[in-house]
Amino acid sequence: MGGLTYIDFLAKFGVGGAHPGGIGLTKSILAEENITNECTILDAGCGTGQTAAYLFDQYKAKITCLELNPIMIEKAKNRFLSLQYPIQLIQGSVEEIPFQDDSFDFILCESVLAFVNKPKALKEFNRVLKPGGRLLANEMTINSKLNKQAEEEIVQFYNIDSLLLESDWVQLFEECGFTDIEIKSLHLNLMDNSSAQEFNFSQNFEPELFSILNQHGNMLVKYHDILSHRIFSCSK
């Protein structure tokens, strides 16, 4: 059993809107899309369900959530139950999505691809999207190449397999069958999460998780000019 990871911290602290820009940025991304109550939407890697709850509240769309982490699943389930929202919640991986081809009008993916096998997940997204369907992704992106040591440090801390430049992401989306790729860089400072983050603490959490929170803060300070994010919107 390895040590605790950044994902463990997010799960145990029940961080809602952990992605760059938080729920505030999510709302502005969604406002630019043509979402109606007829739309089927997959929140891929839904975390504690903050975005999915907003989607239902705002659009009354047909929302399905996919999440692998059992602690996050529990917190999302409790959220939807307390709100009495009819959101389908499924435990599973974005690398093997348990849905038929052409199932969704939209897939929303917020800081998920960085932590998984990217080509595998993107091919799955393409498969389950309807023709003309839209993928909206807010993902960690580096502004410039890093030296080997710095790259190692970031990759190891976040437990990810690679760091991608904007051009790497675009190439990957294209290779996985996506078109009309638009990129938004809102130049948000990752350290400035203007919409306050939401926390839903687990009853038992390990004290070491505080040091992970600390390290995360240190990473953002140390690499503030390199570590960034982009919002990609594209079509099938």
Rank of each mutant, 00 (worst) to 15 (best):
M1W: 07
M1Q: 09
G3M: 08
G3V: 07
G3L: 10
L4S: 11
Y6W: 13
I7V: 12
D8L: 06
D8K: 07
F9P: 00
F9M: 15
L10M: 12
L10N: 05
K12H: 15
F13W: 14
G14V: 02
V15H: 03
G16D: 06
A18C: 02
A18Y: 08
H19T: 03
P20M: 08
P20F: 02
P20T: 03
G22I: 01
G24W: 00
G24C: 06
L25K: 00
S28M: 10
S28V: 07
E32S: 14
E32H: 08
N34P: 00
I35K: 03
N37Q: 11
C39V: 03
T40E: 12
I41H: 02
I41Y: 00
L42N: 07
L42I: 12
T48G: 02
G49Y: 04
G49T: 07
Q50G: 02
Q50L: 14
T51N: 14
A52G: 05
A52K: 07
K62N: 15
C65A: 11
C65D: 08
E67Q: 03
L68P: 01
N69P: 00
I71M: 10
M72W: 01
K77A: 14
N78R: 10
N78I: 04
L81D: 14
E96S: 14
P98T: 09
D101K: 15
F104N: 04
F104K: 00
D105C: 11
F106S: 03
C109N: 12
V112P: 00
L113G: 02
L113F: 13
F115V: 03
F115C: 04
F115Y: 11
F115M: 08
V116Y: 02
P119S: 10
A121Q: 02
L122I: 08
L122C: 01
K123Q: 14
R127D: 12
V128I: 13
K130S: 06
P131F: 09
P131H: 09
G132I: 12
G132L: 11
R134M: 12
L136V: 11
A137W: 01
T141E: 05
K145I: 12
Q149K: 15
Q149L: 15
A150N: 15
E153F: 12
V155H: 08
V155N: 04
Q156A: 14
Q156Y: 09
F157L: 09
Y158C: 07
N159H: 14
I160L: 12
S162I: 10
S162A: 12
L165C: 03
V170T: 07
V170H: 02
V170K: 13
V170S: 04
V170N: 03
L172M: 12
L172C: 09
F173W: 07
E175R: 08
E175A: 15
F178M: 05
T179V: 11
I181H: 05
S185A: 13
L186Q: 12
L188I: 15
N189S: 13
L190K: 07
S194A: 11
S195P: 07
A196E: 13
A196C: 05
A196H: 09
E198F: 08
F199I: 06
N200L: 11
N200T: 13
F201R: 04
E206F: 07
E208F: 10
S211F: 08
I212Y: 04
H216S: 06
G217H: 11
G217F: 04
G217Y: 06
L220H: 03
L220Y: 05
K222L: 04
Y223A: 02
H224N: 13
D225S: 13
I226F: 13
H229K: 05
H229P: 00
I231Q: 05
I231N: 01
S235R: 14
